[in-house]
Amino acid sequence: MTVFACAGCGAELTAPVSRVALPVQAHQEYGDRYLPPLMEPGTYAVDPEPYGPPWRTWGETGADGAAARGVYAPVDAVSFGPAGHVLLAPGDTRGTVVIPERCDGCCGSAGGLGPNLACAGCGLPVGTRIDDCYRWQAVWLAPGTVLRLPVDGPPAPGAGWEWAGIPPIDPTGCWSPRWEAAVGIALAHVLAASAGARVAVPGGLLTTVFGPALDALLPPGPPVRTLALAGPGLPAPGADVVLVPRHPLTGEVWRPGGTAPAVPLDAEVWAHLAFPGDGARIPATGGLPAGVERDDPLPPSPPSGFRPDRELLLRTLARLPAVREPWLLEVYAEARGRR
């Protein structure tokens, strides 16, 4: 396990935490809805990309300058902040104080003014707390301001490939923001792997979450390529593009056999798609005819069709070198121009 300490005075700034993969919703914004902490207690993740201010417009940066920052298509602003921010739950911080003049946002801090947390011991700005109404609650510790100190703790969970899935509908009866984030990111990779050809999606929930967006963004006509799930416990699908799990602890992407492009998908979203269960609802005694469900309680039903997270789709596409191909750049421009 790890404790993060102030690089200025050595004071401990966190509880002991274990590293996990960066969550798919780390950069998600979600309307005016209050969201819970992004990270589970006792865990941390590292963002490998540049994050935070200063920001420069695409015109100021230029295509070559943006590419050097890992951005390959026009965006509103390019981050010139450092890479390697440490992400953890606000409740795992220790010995920090808020810098009030750097707390922006309407209902909390949005993190737009730079580091707003300082070491209580020496006053060194060490990170940014985000808890505004449209962001997942999190603390981002800035690289160069903290030290990693190994500490004793319980052994990390095994890195096996078995975990439970999460349902696509949250307790409020709406589509899960995590599903929308995961599918938005994976959709960008599916588009790149399609080579501009129409993609056929198997029926069921996979079609519900991927099909409409693929139909809207790829050219009309009969499908040329196929999309399917692949991974532990599934037979080889024989598809042209496969969706595979990304390990929630290590970030490792499952490597299937064959030559089909493998698109990483949030492991717990993948698990629900791959092994949804039979969904049977059986009364305490007796049984129900095949195809009949109890109406007490009714299963939750979202008020609208599923929509992959558009901003994360665009963010991911802009960071794929393949987006510089004319056909995919046109798809990117089309996605930017529509809701």
Rank of each mutant, 00 (worst) to 15 (best):
R324K: 13
R129L: 15
V151D: 03
S194W: 01
P297I: 06
A333D: 13
P90N: 07
R310Y: 05
G257C: 02
L141P: 12
G158D: 14
P223V: 06
G127N: 11
A192S: 11
R94E: 09
W136I: 09
A271M: 03
L314H: 08
L329Y: 01
H247A: 09
W254P: 00
R338E: 01
E325A: 15
A195R: 14
T93Q: 05
V292S: 06
G231W: 05
A280T: 08
P171A: 14
W270S: 09
P283M: 13
Y51N: 02
A77Q: 14
L265Q: 07
A15R: 15
I185R: 14
G158T: 06
C6Q: 14
T61L: 08
L206Q: 12
W55P: 00
A213G: 02
G123W: 13
G158E: 12
V71L: 05
R102A: 11
S194Y: 02
P154T: 07
D131I: 08
L113W: 09
E252W: 00
A73C: 07
P48Y: 10
G258P: 05
P167W: 02
R315Y: 14
G257Y: 01
T128L: 09
M39R: 13
P297E: 03
T43W: 05
G95E: 14
V139M: 13
P256I: 05
S304G: 02
S304P: 00
G112D: 15
I166C: 02
G65K: 13
A67E: 15
E252K: 03
G286F: 11
P297N: 04
A77K: 14
D76Y: 12
T128N: 08
L117K: 09
D278R: 12
L13H: 12
L227Y: 03
C9F: 11
A77T: 12
A159M: 00
G114Q: 11
V86N: 03
W175P: 04
V139Q: 10
R307M: 10
A195P: 00
L191D: 01
A73P: 03
I185Y: 00
P212G: 04
P276Q: 11
A67S: 15
S194G: 03
P53C: 04
P154I: 06
C6P: 10
A260M: 09
G305V: 04
C122N: 08
P171G: 03
C106G: 00
A66R: 10
V146F: 03
R148Q: 15
P48M: 04
F275E: 11
R281W: 13
H189N: 11
A181P: 11
P321Q: 05
P82D: 15
V201F: 04
P256S: 02
D295N: 14
G108W: 03
I169N: 10
P326L: 10
L265G: 03
D309P: 01
L191G: 01
E40S: 15
A290E: 14
G91F: 09
A66P: 14
G121P: 04
R307I: 01
R102I: 08
A67D: 10
L187I: 00
P299M: 05
T316P: 05
L113A: 14
E293G: 15
V3K: 08
P237Q: 06
P167N: 02
V98E: 15
P302I: 05
G204C: 11
A290D: 12
F306N: 02
E334I: 00
